[in-house]
Design a protein around this nucleic acid. Structure first.
Length: 220
DNA sequence: AGATTTAAATTCC
DNA sequence: AGGAATTTAAATC
C-alpha cells in the first residue's frame, strides 16, 4: 500500500462551512498506508534544534512546544515570531505525498511545514496561516498522522476582548490518523486555529501543512 | 499609527 | 481535574 496508488476519484469529502470558513475533510490514507507513512517519516525526518526551534513572545524567548521542520523549493524560508527557518530540500517520501496532493487538488504545493507533537503536552497556540508571502488564492492542505488530536478554530471576531467581540461559536474537529483537512480561502484570513494540550494523549502526532508561496519568493 | 503576533503563568470555572 | 479565558511587551507590518 503506498501513497502513489491512492485513487483520487474515490475520495469522499466532508464539507465544513461557517461564516468565512470553508473546510474539506477526508480520511485520505487507509490505516495500513498511514502506518507505513508515519513509520517512514519517523525514520527519515530530522527536526530543527537550537535557535531555529525558538520563538519570541512578549519579549521572552521560548523553545517551541513541539518539534518542527520545513521542506520545499529552494529559496523559500518560513518566518514566525522572531525566527526564520530555511526550507530543506524535498525528500523522496515528501515529494510523493506532495505529488498526490497536487493530483488530488489541482494545486501545486511548493512548501511543507511539519510539526511533530511528542505527546499531549506538545501543542500549538492560536494563529492564522496568512503570511503575505503565501498565495492567498490557494488552499492549505493539512495531513495528520499518529495520535488523534482536537483541532480548534475560532472566528477572529469571537477572539478579541471588548465591546466588538462577536459570539461566533468555535469549530472543533478530531484530526484522525491518515486524515486530510483542506483549509480553503478565505478561511485562514478569518479563522484562527490551535491544537490545545491534551493530558490523555500519549502518542506522537505528526502534522504536515502543504502550502503554496507567491512566485516571487522562489529562487530562479 | 494602530492592529497583530506568539507561549506561559495565572485565574476561573 | 482539566479546560478555557485572561494577562503579559516589544517588534513588525
Amino acid at each position: 500500500m503506498d501513497v502513489a496508488k491512492i485513487d483520487c476519484e474515490r475520495v469522499k469529502w466532508r464539507k465544513i462551512t461557517a461564516e468565512g470558513l470553508n473546510l474539506d475533510y477526508t480520511i485520505l490514507l487507509p490505516k495500513v498506508c498511514a502506518d507505513q507513512v508515519l513509520r517512514q517519516l519517523e525514520e527519515t525526518l530530522e527536526y530543527f534544534t537550537g535557535d531555529l526551534a525558538k520563538v519570541k513572545v512578549f519579549g521572552r524567548w521560548h523553545p517551541i512546544p513541539r518539534q518542527q521542520v520545513a521542506h520545499g523549493e529552494p529559496g523559500i524560508s518560513y518566518k514566525f515570531s522572531g525566527t526564520t527557518v530555511p526550507a530543506l530540500p524535498w525528500t523522496e517520501l515528501l515529494s510523493e505525498i506532495r505529488d498526490k496532493l497536487n493530483e488530488l487538488t489541482g494545486h501545486r504545493f511548493d512548501f511543507v511545514l511539519i510539526n511533530r507533537y511528542r505527546n499531549g503536552n506538545d501543542h500549538m497556540g492560536e494563529h492564522r496561516d496568512d503570511e503575505s508571502e503565501l498565495d492567498s488564492s490557494a488552499p492549505i492542505a493539512s495531513l495528520s498522522l499518529g495520535q488523534r488530536r482536537t483541532f480548534v478554530l475560532k472566528h477572529k471576531d469571537a477572539r478579541k476582548p471588548g465591546p466588538d467581540k462577536r459570539n461566533v461559536p468555535p469549530v472543533k474537529l478530531e484530526l484522525e490518523h491518515g486524515s486530510l483537512l483542506m483549509m480553503n480561502p478565505p478561511t485562514n484570513k478569518i479563522w484562527y486555529h490551535s491544537l490545545p494540550k491534551k493530558k490523555s494523549a500519549i502518542g506522537v502526532r505528526i502534522n504536515m501543512t502543504f502550502r503554496k508561496y507567491n512566485a516571487n519568493v522562489l529562487k530562479k
